[in-house]
């Protein structure tokens, strides 16, 4: 079967139960919103194809259950993720405090070079806000990662969040490929070797 995309990026959504992970994914993949909270059981995913720098990028976005009882299952997917979004609910301070725990989980189970991003969801409910934007930004700065406030309901910043993460992954990928190219020099045989290396590298990335 001929490939219909140029790159496959695997993203992962993690965070406390009820912060809006599934709603964010639903907004991004279907551009719709469901007011009823249905707790995710185990693991689910959606695929959306985007275009970046003229390349077709397939985003496979894994949606994890935030409940403790599914932790074993969801942790197994950390290893394969190229980008991870840590989501908290601005109306729920506890979910914000738990971001530190989620980051610790990532450090324990994910690749060391995984791209990360913190999202403060439900920013449309400002009247019930418990976590200020400044606190969110400060936490992200402390860990050296990007931060956005989003609303799956109003769709504020949702596209931006996923595109930002995808672009960061692409940037990192391109940097690695450039490094690999500069290492090689010389005759045709070396060119062949470089191609082989690139192919091998690409396949490793997918895995």
């Amino acid at each position: 079967m001929a490939k219909t995309y140029d790159y496959l990026f695997k993203l992962l959504l993690i965070g406390d139960s009820g912060v809006g992970k599934t709603c964010l994914l639903f907004r991004f993949s279907e551009d719709a919103f469901n007011t009823t909270f249905i707790s995710t059981i185990g693991i689910d995913f959606k695929i959306r194809t985007i275009e970046l720098d003229g390349k077709k990028i397939k985003l496979q976005i894994w949606d994890t259950a935030g409940q403790e009882r599914f932790r074993t299952i969801t942790t197994a997917y950390y290893r394969g993720a190229m980008g991870i979004m840590l989501v908290y609910d601005i109306t729920n301070e506890k979910s914000f405090d738990n971001i530190k725990n989620w980051i610790r989980n990532i450090e324990e189970h994910a690749s060391s070079d995984v791209e990360r991003m913190i999202l403060g969801n439900k920013c449309d409910m400002n009247d019930k806000r418990q976590v200020s934007k400044e606190r969110g930004e400060k936490l992200a700065i402390d860990y050296g990662i990007k931060f956005l406030e989003t609303s799956a309901k109003s769709s504020a910043n949702v596209e931006e969040a996923f595109f930002t993460l995808a672009r960061d992954i692409m940037t990192k990928l391109n940097r690695k490929m450039n490094d690999s190219n500069s290492a090689g020099a010389g005759g045709p045989v070396k060119i062949t070797e470089n191609r082989s290396k690139k192919t091998s590298f690409f396949r490793c990335s997918l895995l």
Partner: peptide, 29 residues
């Protein structure tokens, strides 16, 4: 649809394809 076989490869990888392993793991979950 994520399958990306190289149908003219001369030697196998030695491991199952990534997409398929994800698929199997998903079903198991």
């Amino acid at each position: 649809q994520l399958a990306d076989y190289d149908w003219t490869m001369s030697e196998p990888d030695g491991r199952a394809s990534g997409y398929l392993m994800d698929l199997i793991n998903f079903l198991r979950s």
